[in-house]
């Protein structure tokens, strides 16, 4: 009974934290564009506040630069269970153009933390990001909540 209530509540209230681990910003601005009245993220019960300590979903952007090698895991650990990480853009998936000779990136991000969903694109469109959060967010969070028991 309690679990069922928790599931319902969790599914309809997703807190998001954007973690930019070294991208060009393009993906971040598309995440910010999601907040605009046109897409209105909050009507889906998604709330962006950039505080890892309260986050359910970590939106990863960027290609994991040197400084983020250790910090990424630390930020991930700070977020309370249940949590999922969603990789936004080509950067955390493959390193995009930065993964070449001379670049200082350590993509993919899934080497450091478990990534639940990947949204390719450079940058992906806001509705794609929204779709991905809604597709994996609620169920993954509800499932994780149960595993913890």
């Amino acid at each position: 009974m309690l679990d069922a209530i928790k599931d319902v509540v969790r599914k309809s209230s997703i807190h998001v934290c954007i973690v930019n681990c070294g991208g060009c910003n393009g993906c971040d601005v598309e995440c910010v564009a999601l907040l605009s009245p046109r897409y209105d993220l909050e009507q889906f019960g998604i709330y962006v506040h950039n505080n890892p300590r309260e986050a359910d979903v970590l939106l990863l952007t960027g290609a994991v630069t040197e400084q983020w090698k250790d910090n990424l895991k630390r930020i991930y650990d700070k977020a309370p269970e249940p949590k999922i990480a969603v990789a936004v853009g080509n950067c955390p998936i493959s390193g995009d153009v930065f993964a070449q000779e001379g670049g200082h990136v350590n993509a993919p991000a899934s080497n450091f933390i478990p990534v639940a969903a990947e949204i390719p694109g450079c940058p992906p469109r806001p509705n794609e990001i929204l779709e991905a959060i809604l597709a994996v967010g609620p169920q993954a969070i509800a499932d994780r909540g149960r595993e913890q028991k």
Binding site: C21, T65, F98, Q100, G102, G103, H104
Partner: peptide, 13 residues
Amino acid sequence: YGYVHRGIEKIME
């Protein structure tokens, strides 16, 4: 600073 240094100029060479 230093969190998003990717080395773009070096890659371009």
